[in-house]
């Protein structure tokens, strides 16, 4: 494994530790928005990883952005490890919900969003994600072209996001 390039202006350990401490909360908040139950663990894993690579960090770079990218890679690596484990259902079942005031709020938002969908959008969305029906099965069941079914699904997912949107979106 090749050694990481050493920055000529690398921070000393104390300065680097201060950098991590300064952005730690922001990174944790970012990870919590991606997942809930394992955000702390992923944060520790991220900090341990960047600490090992501290010699390659260029102080001229945006430290926060660098840490957030490292956290995101840690998050993706974790998802890849989780995906390799045998699961009984689709991968969405193992996704952690982002931070919410309560799980009930999220459920209420989703229920409201489902009610706002058109009947065909709601039927297709539930049949596909909840009941595990394939696009081809739904097309045959509703006597619709496959692309039409996909369009309805895409629209339903988009509207699922729009209703009750994220608190800190954009």
């Amino acid at each position: 494994m090749p050694a990481s390039p050493v920055s000529q202006n690398a921070l000393d350990d104390a300065a680097f530790a201060e950098l991590l401490q300064r952005h730690r909360a922001r990174v944790l908040h970012f990870l919590q928005r991606l997942c809930v139950g394992e955000a702390e663990d992923l944060l520790q894993e991220t900090l341990a990883k960047v600490w090992r690579l501290r010699a390659s960090f260029d102080p001229a770079r945006n430290g926060e952005a660098w840490l957030l990218q490292a956290a995101f890679r840690t998050f993706c690596d974790h998802r890849a490890r989780t995906a390799r484990r045998p699961v009984a259902g689709p991968f969405v079942e193992h996704v952690e919900a982002p931070v919410r005031a309560s799980a009930i709020e999220l459920r209420d938002e989703v229920v409201a969003a489902l009610q706002a969908l058109t009947p065909i959008q709601r039927d297709l969305l539930l049949a596909f994600h909840r009941d595990g029906a394939s696009v081809e099965e739904l097309a045959a069941r509703h006597r619709l072209p496959v692309n039409t079914v996909k369009s309805h699904l895409h629209r339903a997912r988009t509207r699922l996001q729009e209703r009750g949107g994220r608190d800190d979106a954009r």
């Binding site: 991606l34 990218q69 919900a97 982002p98 989703v110 994600h129 909840r130 699922l160 994220r166």
Partner: peptide, 30 residues
């Protein structure tokens, strides 16, 4: 693209979380 844009990554994670609720919220018809 997700790595470059944290907000987009969070939005996708939020969508997946909502789809989880869709799969788990209502009991399967069977």
């Amino acid at each position: 693209h997700l790595a470059d844009d944290a907000e987009v990554a969070v939005r996708v994670a939020d969508l997946l979380a909502r789809l989880v609720v869709v799969t788990q919220n209502a009991a399967p018809r069977r």
